[in-house]
Design a protein around this nucleic acid. Structure first.
Length: 786
DNA sequence: TACTGGATTATTTTT
DNA sequence: TAATCCAGTA
């Protein structure tokens, strides 16, 4: 027998489909296409991660077998095996398929880039289960971790040393503030915040200070900021420190100025995959383009409709114009949604369809219509949160849900307060995302600063932080003098401190500085000969920091000694790191602390309601979602309305809606107290974009015929009324309707504003003659007709 | 240097 | 409202 090429490839393809049968057609297509540039537009809940993981698995197991149509040498033999395997198990199919493998990718030649550590870890884990130990050699990580890995090896070409420190936002703020103070920049004209974000925006575009200055034209703010940028960059270099933007920008620079370095990595990486491509900024995009140029085996996955980070430099253009960077690019759309039920998905589709700048996708689901979206209009935020607490309690008590099934989402963090209070009051377990992180605590940052200085004594910002903590009589005056001497001598503050007695202007503080430098020196010596955890222990004792914290706790009456606890926790983190990391050096530990936030490790665990912003909910899903504050001026935000950022807000709304699997509640209050002011609120304009057939409103809406002359928008007149579904009698109790007068045993007489069926019971909204408005369940209220 | 009070000012956040 | 920051005082 002699099998033809066509026959062989057909069989091969049939087996592929059997093996990857758990994937739908476009997903299979994405897995199969390994050569050439590929853009995967993955809608919300379309199984994007599964595709990426299996695509890598496929690369490593079968190489480009599916795109390579050449007949292998022992075609007949393999063909026979394939025929035999066809009816067999997955393992059998795989064994046969493996024989067809053409040039399987070596794991270390695969680069998989994500945005968050959480995503990176998820990939690593899933690849591990798929490929076993081979997975460990895959370059999977965040943009930042991968760039740091590259920079550690080559950054000396750019005039830094490999032991550089990574500055977090706090360090950056300190440094910028100091520079602005020195330059007598009027903070009223130009805030530190504005300067930081402006510099960041230019760094993301890959501009240096001079290029920024050229770009500034006559804009005084930009000119001023460009000058600050120049000084800032010099200071960073002097301190041998990089900020987060530098990590990307300098890797870019390294590649464009040293082609041989770029060539090395271009040669190494046969295949590049990028997740969440819609979140890339221009310099990240350039990095991908540079690395992927040549072989062009670049696969980017993303959803232009979920691009919600433009405020930190991400640009949708990267995904919209991927085919411009790679003209041969093939586009695959993943449009089947495995997450939400019909009404929810249709609502999301309807809202996002209003955006102009998009590739265009239409998600569909094989799941049924599911439940209607509930739209509620509480009088104020207290009612909003007690309604939610009530709903959660009810669904948990009835056994329908667990606490972990619920999420409360909001546009701004400020809205979490009320919800939190309601959860406490109702004794509902909850977890709240955001807030102060572990490594942002003062005591943790202090200890990290000691470690940074030991690792890199040139680090002026962190040296300054610990110079007088705990108190060692080195005041602000001395610190400033030290700083200006260092600037004049083009040397580090640490180096000056070491020879402080040479400078008469330091006076008798010189001795203190020398003493301090000896302390650091002793730490450095200690670190040479001891393990990481021993060193950290030595540092916190020898510096007197632990004692300082203990005394402080005594003085404040802090019985828990919380700050000391946190330092101990940091110590146990160090020990954990020692046990798990392959290379447990001080420098590696500091890197991990800088690039890995504890939010990544948090998560899961107890059964609790999740409270978070819509932004942080991206990538997550929940059976039941409550979206609160769905009001114009809040969502979309006021500044988005004024500055024309509506499309991004709409994408945000799209993200919010698509988080829900089975039930979605949208809330907009009648009035809300925010930032100490109570304001009447109108519903989000996005609400009107959801077709009525997908929602169930607990109030009546009438659209006026003529658009409002000021806003040019169609106005809505809202009033309480009967819910669309007429109430049914429940459990023998009398059922009331809106408008009825009733009497409550405790609250007295009142009028029903709204009545709504709810889980075999009636929920009434009643305005009592005393003036208060309450929501009460019918079975609970013991109402009588008045 | 620690404390007090008045002014100020509030998106979204990962690395 | 609530948190934070700065200036002025003890």
């Amino acid at each position: 027998m002699s099998v033809s090429t066509a026959q062989f490839n057909q069989k091969k393809r049939a087996l592929f489909e059997k093996y990857y049968g758990f994937l739908n057609a476009p997903q299979q297509e994405a897995v199969r296409t390994v050569r050439g540039p590929l853009l995967v537009l993955a809608g919300a809940g379309s199984g994007k991660t599964t595709v990426l993981v299996n695509r890598i698995g496929n690369l490593i197991l079968f190489g480009d077998a599916w795109q390579n149509e050449e007949l292998p040498a022992e075609a007949d033999e393999i063909y026979a095996e394939m025929c035999e395997a066809e009816g067999g198990s997955r393992a059998k199919i795989r064994t046969a398929l493996e024989k067809t493998a053409v040039d399987p990718a070596r794991p270390y030649r695969v680069l998989c880039i994500t945005f968050t550590n959480k995503a990176a870890n998820e990939f690593k884990e899933r690849l591990q289960t798929l490929l076993g130990d081979r997975a460990n050699d895959i370059w999977a990580g965040t943009f930042h971790s991968i760039c740091v890995r590259i920079l550690r090896r080559h950054i000396d070409l750019l005039g830094y040393t490999g032991s550089f420190t990574i500055y977090d936002t706090d360090d950056v703020k300190k440094l910028i503030t100091a520079i602005m103070k020195r330059r007598h920049t009027d903070e009223k004209m130009l805030s530190v915040k504005a300067v930081i974000s402006l510099i960041s925006r230019y760094k993301e575009k890959g501009y240096d200070a001079e290029e920024m200055l050229m770009d500034a034209g006559k804009d005084d703010r930009i000119v001023k900021t460009a000058n600050i940028y120049g000084e800032y960059q010099r200071e960073l270099k002097q301190s041998n420190a990089l900020d987060f933007d530098d990590i990307i920008m300098l890797t870019d620079k390294l590649f464009s100025e040293f082609p041989e370095v770029l060539q090395k990595y271009r040669t190494q990486f046969d295949y590049i995959l990028v997740d969440e491509f819609q979140d890339t900024n221009p310099s990240q995009n350039r990095l991908v383009t540079m690395l992927g140029g040549g072989k062009e085996n670049v696969c980017v996955v993303g959803d232009d409709d979920q691009s919600i980070y433009s405020f930190r430099g991400a640009t949708v253009e990267n995904i919209l114009q991927f085919d411009r960077a790679f003209p041969r690019a093939k586009t695959i759309r993943l449009e089947q949604n495995y997450r939400s039920t019909g009404h929810i998905l249709d609502a999301a589709n309807a809202v996002i369809a209003k955006n102009r700048e998009r590739k265009g996708k239409n998600l569909w689901t094989a799941a049924g219509e599911g439940e209607l979206i509930r739209v509620e209009r509480p009088t104020n935020q207290n009612e909003e949160s007690s309604f939610i607490a009530y709903e959660i309690k009810r669904k948990v008590t009835s056994g329908e849900c667990r606490y972990g099934d619920f999420a409360v989402l909001y546009r701004v963090g400020a809205l979490s307060n009320n919800i939190e209070q309601a959860m406490v009051k109702a004794r509902i377990p909850y977890r709240i995302c955001g807030g102060l992180r572990f490594n942002e605590r003062r005591e943790v940052k202090d200890v990290i600063s000691y470690l940074s200085v030991v690792n890199n004594p040139a680090d002026n910002v962190r040296l300054r932080r610990i110079l007088n903590v705990p108190k060692r009589a080195i005041g602000d005056t001395t610190a400033s003098r030290l700083e200006s001497i260092a600037a004049a001598e083009h040397d580090s503050m640490y180096a000056i401190a070491c020879r402080a007695n040479v400078y008469p202007e330091l006076g008798k503080a010189a001795n203190k500085l020398i003493e301090f430098s000896r302390l650091i020196e002793s730490m450095r010596d200690y670190a040479e000969e001891h393990t990481l955890s021993e060193t950290v222990e030595y540092i916190v004792t020898a510096s007197g920091y632990m004692r300082f914290l203990a005394e402080e706790a005594e003085a404040d009456g802090d019985i828990e000694h919380e700050r000391e606890q946190n330092v101990r926790e940091l110590l146990s983190t160090v020990r954990q790191f020692e046990d798990s990391a392959e290379n447990p050096t001080l420098s590696a530990f500091l890197e991990e602390m800088a690039l890995v936030s504890d939010v990544d490790s948090l998560e899961e665990g107890q059964d609790a309601v999740t409270l978070m912003t819509v932004h942080s909910a991206k990538g997550l899903e929940f059976p039941v979602v409550f979206l609160i504050g769905f009001e114009d001026g809040l969502f979309p935000s006021l500044q988005a309305i004024m500055e024309g950022g509506i499309e991004e807000e709409r994408r945000l709304a799209y993200v919010a809606i698509t988080r829900a699997k089975r039930m979605l509640y949208l809330f907009h209050t009648e009035s809300r107290m925010l930032y100490g002011r109570t304001e009447y609120r109108s519903p989000s304009r996005f609400l009107a974009e959801i077709p009525d057939e997908h929602t169930q409103k607990s109030y009546e809406v009438r659209r006026t015929a003529a658009p409002d002359p000021y806003t040019k928008r169609q106005t809505e007149e809202i009033r309480f009324g009967r819910p669309r579904e007429t109430a049914r009698p429940a459990g023998g109790q009398t059922v009331f309707a809106a408008g009825d007068r009733v009497k409550h045993a405790f609250f007295g007489p009142g009028e029903i504003l709204a009545a709504q069926e709810m889980g075999g019971d009636m929920l009434y909204e009643i305005r009592f003659d005393s003036g208060s408005i309450k929501r009460i369940m019918g079975s609970f209220a013991k109402l009588q007709k008045e």
